[in-house]
């Protein structure tokens, strides 16, 4: 049973002289992973960053349109409270140059003051959720920079989860990772989707096939980025309707040598 969590309509992002994303509308439901694919420069990241209003931080970008999180317009709310409800993972894991434990609590500890035992409970459960606890439970005081890139990305996930968000945005979270770390993240996404609404940008069609339920293809049409096609994952991948998606899938097929794995 899935519930409508996020509904975007007529989302448009402009700079002073260009339209980066035009008239994007989509719906993301709980328990389902919403995938975003499309060629580089199409506007996938721009679209994702509308949802937690990260585009507001970029001077010169103007966002219009309507996004509702559980029916509430995201513009009316306090933006920092909104961002606490929406976690985000970036392409390169961004860890803060402090200890592993401090990193996990970076966002959580500002929402409410934690006692020492609460703090360690939050740390443990977030790290367990990110499947990192067993690897680093004895090293919480060490600098986070000693972790491998794959571990760092899971640490970022733990840090986002510690804030207890409902929605997770992931912008190509595995493109900097090796296959094993990628598999770990994918497994986590499949586990987390029962409790979170997940939107993920990916360049990897095989990955989209493995973890997404709904897909949207963002591509350039008439010189501006748009959602050219969206729907059920299998339907989009097996019988693409638009030339943009056909071309994108074809190009990825050639790129991966017609293999899936």
């Amino acid at each position: 049973m899935s519930e409508l969590i996020l509904k975007a309509s007529a989302l448009t992002v402009r700079t002073a002289d260009r339209v980066l994303l035009y008239d994007a509308s989509f719906r993301a439901e709980s328990g389902r992973v919403f995938g975003i694919i499309g060629p580089s420069g199409g506007g996938k990241s721009t679209l994702l960053r509308c949802i937690n209003r990260l585009n507001d931080l970029v001077p010169g970008l103007r966002v219009s349109g309507d996004i509702r999180l559980r029916g509430e317009c995201i513009r009316t709310n306090d933006v920092n409270a909104l961002r606490a409800r929406i976690g985000m993972l970036f392409q390169q894991p961004v860890i803060f140059p402090t200890s592993i434990g401090e990193n996990v609590l970076f966002g959580a500890k500002r929402l409410r003051s934690l006692t020492r035992s609460e703090a360690s409970a939050v740390t443990e459960s977030a790290l367990r959720e990110a499947a990192l606890w067993d690897e680093i439970k004895d090293r919480l005081r060490q600098p986070a920079t000693v972790l491998s890139v794959g571990q760092q990305q899971r640490l970022c996930l733990a840090r986002a989860l510690a804030v207890q968000p409902e929605v997770l945005l992931m912008d190509e979270p595995t493109s900097a990772l090796d296959p094993r770390s990628t598999a770990a993240i994918e497994e986590l996404i499949l586990r987390l989707k029962t409790s979170h609404t997940i939107l993920i940008v990916t360049h990897n069609i095989a990955q989209a096939r493995r973890i997404t339920d709904t897909l949207a293809c963002v591509s350039i049409r008439d010189g501006v980025g748009q959602i050219v096609e969206q729907g059920e994952r299998e339907q989009l991948l097996t019988s693409p309707q638009t030339p943009e998606l056909c071309e994108y899938l074809h190009a990825s097929d050639i790129h991966t040598g017609f293999t899936d794995e």
Binding site: L54, M88, F90, G107, R110
Partner: peptide, 12 residues
Amino acid sequence: TQRRAARALGLT
């Protein structure tokens, strides 16, 4: 990226 990650966590 550091600033952005911090803001994305909900820090003012």
